[in-house]
Amino acid sequence: MPAIKTYKRPVDGWWRRNPFYTWYMVREGSSVFVTVYALILLTGLWRLTQGQEAFDAWRASLASPIALVFHVLALWMFIMHTLSWFKVMPKTMPFVRIGGKRVPDQTIINAGKIAAVVCTVLFYVVFLWVTP
């Protein structure tokens, strides 16, 4: 078979040319942090099943500088994820109609952000309430 279409357009650094693309890459890049965070929790669960000594070693590793740096970056990426998730929500969900009128995009975005704040506060309050 003859080789066809051998030219590949270079893609290096295309996201640096325009701030819109940079934010797109931040948004998509949050997936790496979400995945690694899930794996950290999964590791914790695995260490938990191995007993107290193993679990305490996992907890100690969370207090290491590299883990703390990762989690600070991850917190920023998760917040970016929250903001972008609700920003695109009017495009990713079906139209919502109330009284025959389409709910404006900005209302949906704001409702999502308010829901995130409410969930965050509620979770933190319940967490403080149930832990010593």
Binding site: V34, Y37, I40, L41, L48, Q52, F55, D56, R59, L62, A63, A67, L68, F70, H71, V72, A74, L75, F78, I79, H81, T82, W85, F86, G112, A115, A116, C119, T120, F123, Y124, F127, L128, T131, P132
Partner: peptide, 29 residues
Amino acid sequence: AALFGPILVFITGIAVPLGLGASKDAMSY
């Protein structure tokens, strides 16, 4: 992740390991 991700990361990755805004024993065995 959008609703609970930030607070989860803050609690398990920053607050509890540092004892900052949460007890270090909150995630005891």
